[in-house]
Design a protein around this nucleic acid. Structure first.
Lengths: 333, 333
DNA sequence: TTGTAGGCGTTATCAT
DNA sequence: ATGATAACGCCTACAA
């Protein structure tokens, strides 16, 4: 079942059929009707791959994430997909599993598919891969990578905003010994959050105590271990800022095991505002990062680049905002 | 950059290049070397869409889920993708949002892409859509739908196993008034779980009390509301079985608000064993359903069908198993 | 072992 | 307003 059969069935040329279904030039009502009914009758579905071959646009987008199981991603993926589908695109999602060999494989495959653009929502990516995409003029959008260039856009999460709000919130509650559990410092996003924290603390005249800043792995178990470490300190922190919600949830567990109550004994703040944080005990004070927004922006950036003459990249910024729930309270002296 | 340029660069025919990269017939070492270096030099990437056009296989698979944000799905998607990629396939994920118009749109698009198979991991799907796929000889694999046919396989989750274990566990702990929060009964999976529960209760000689069986929506808020309803009863249940973990988490919230302790005041069991259940307070006793297994089976089924002569569908079964954690305890009289 | 050439299903450029 | 037809990039008989 192809365009030719439809054409024959309707006694027109393939060109006419093509024009009709793509709405690419005027077709007389009578022929249109003939053709539509032929299409209907034969159950014709255009072959998009063939169309891509001929037109040079695959209407395919690549979406690279590190791990869809990480609760940060599903919403992002969903909103990206929603936008893309609306504009006629289909998306191929690729999990890298934080593994660069795997990433390379998937990116190459995307190139072979002739995707019209790639959203790289994972923290780091080899320059050679980027080059391979750039060489072919494939638009890319990154998450949190400064380099806006030709055919490369970026979407920046304003971590500082949220972190400053979080720090101020704790200070206002009277806390002065504030612990911080970072993500794995190999990741850029982890480094940014950490230095933002230290910066605001310094700005407020609090002297940094090295022992209060420890590292997790953005996962529950890392948060648990890190909190256990903080609790071993002679002088414990009275509040802890975790650099993502999973970390905070792990910290919560550790506290529970030690028989400590949140927020009475210690205040705790997460980061990301994943859905779960509403349902922890107590509901977690956290910093909202709208994944939906990120997904939308990612698609927008790509779409813009694809349809742009100049191919000049742009940067979009996603705000972050403190959400106060029940895991933070006034320091009791 | 296409196969022709490579051929010219290496002084061979396009056929030779094609044969080499597809490893489809013997090529003399010398020519092979020449061609490989030409490929290397020119940075040639085959165009998979063109390949698909010519060969009739797109190496594309569709994966339909209801909502990737639902924690049941990410692991499934990931494992499916992993298997598929290993065999050279790329996958297009489609969120239906439980909306049949949307589902229709996405399925049609998959057909236009000439996907080699579709995994339908959502509970229900219009027969007309299934027909549209079947007509074109596109293999399908369903989740929990009895109908194994030509080009249609099924993967069955053995809910009964896990539910019987759960019920027995509660009975052994001395519970007799056992509540049940079902999923939305419009969904087949919800109906299956509910009737399995009722069946085992009856089998053990417990008389069904209608008021103890109520409905949620597979989400946190539904679980919360349902538990609130159960708590209003003159005679409260001493244990509750929720038909998925999100429901159980909602129930947990409701209990907390009422100042009730789990498992001292009431025992609670979830279903699915999503990652979170390890981190709730208390860690949730639940029934494990391996999403990883489901994803693997789904791909296997499709792969089998694609490469089968007879196109005879098959059924695979995924076991379920009770995981005892800390949300269930001996009934205190 | 390698080359030639027709075909896969569309689009798009010229014509008419 | 519509038709012919050459691409698009690759695969695969069929030849040699």
């Amino acid at each position: 079942m192809n365009i030719k059969e439809v054409a024959e069935h309707a006694n027109v040329s393939t060109a006419t059929v093509s024009r009709l279904i793509n709405n690419t030039s005027y077709i007389s009502p009578e022929t249109a009707k003939k053709v539509w009914s032929a299409i209907e009758e034969l159950g014709y579905y255009p072959n998009i791959n063939a169309r891509g071959l001929a037109s040079g646009r695959s209407l395919l987008l690549g979406l690279i994430v590190s791990d869809i199981v990480n609760p940060f991603f599903p919403e992002l993926v969903k909103s990206f997909e929603e936008c893309a589908v609306e504009q006629g695109y289909e998306i191929i999602t690729a999990n890298t599993n934080y593994d660069s060999a795997r990433t390379a494989l998937r990116v190459r495959r995307l190139i072979e598919r002739r995707v019209d653009g790639v959203a790289v929502m994972t923290s780091e990516m080899d320059q050679t891969l980027i080059d391979e995409l750039s060489t072919r003029g494939i638009p890319i959008v990154f998450l949190d990578t400064g380099a806006v260039q030709e055919n490369i856009s970026n979407i920046r999460i304003d971590y500082e905003q949220g972190i400053s709000e979080a720090v101020n919130h704790l200070l206002e509650l009277g806390h002065r010994r504030i612990g911080f559990i970072s993500g794995p410092l190999g990741l850029k996003s982890a480094r940014i959050r950490r230095s933002a924290f230290l910066k605001f603390l310094r700005q407020q005249g609090i002297i940094e105590e090295k022992e209060l800043v420890t590292m997790g792995n953005y996962k529950i178990n890392g948060g648990k271990d890190a909190m256990n470490r903080l609790l071993k300190l002679k002088e414990r922190p009275t509040a802890v800022l975790a650099s993502n919600d999973l970390t905070a949830i792990g910290a919560l567990q550790a506290l529970r095991i030690h028989g400590l109550h949140v927020p009475e004994d210690i205040s705790l703040i997460g980061f990301d505002n994943i859905v779960l944080t509403e349902s922890t005990d107590p509901p977690l004070t956290t910093v909202n990062v709208s994944r939906v927004k990120v997904g939308e922006f990612a698609f927008e950036s790509l779409f813009e680049l694809i349809n742009s003459e100049t191919k000049i990249g742009t940067e979009r910024q996603v705000e972050t905002k403190l959400i106060v729930r029940d895991s933070t309270a006034q320091l009791i002296v």
